[in-house]
């Protein structure tokens, strides 16, 4: 607990619970990212094609 208090000093987080909630949210977000619908190589190529056509990519 003391270590967490030291860690959050000067960061803008005003409570240990607020910081812990933020960390847990980030951890869960990382798990969800693995489970989310895949952005296929084909989708990515289509995006790159559009970006090339518009001049954003060479």
């Amino acid at each position: 607990m003391e270590k967490i208090k030291e860690r959050i000093e000067g960061t803008g987080f005003t409570s240990v619970s607020g910081y812990v909630t933020y960390v847990l949210r980030e951890v869960i977000a990382n798990i969800d990212e693995d489970e989310e619908e895949a952005f296929s190589k084909e989708d990515e190529e289509k995006v790159k094609e559009r970006l090339r056509a518009l001049g954003y990519l060479d």
């Binding site: 990212e33 952005f39 990515e44």
Partner: peptide, 15 residues
């Protein structure tokens, strides 16, 4: 599936 964002890339809001 391709890696749409690398480990360095900004995560979307809410994850």
């Amino acid at each position: 599936p391709s890696d749409t964002w690398t480990d360095n890339m900004q995560k979307p809001h809410g994850g």
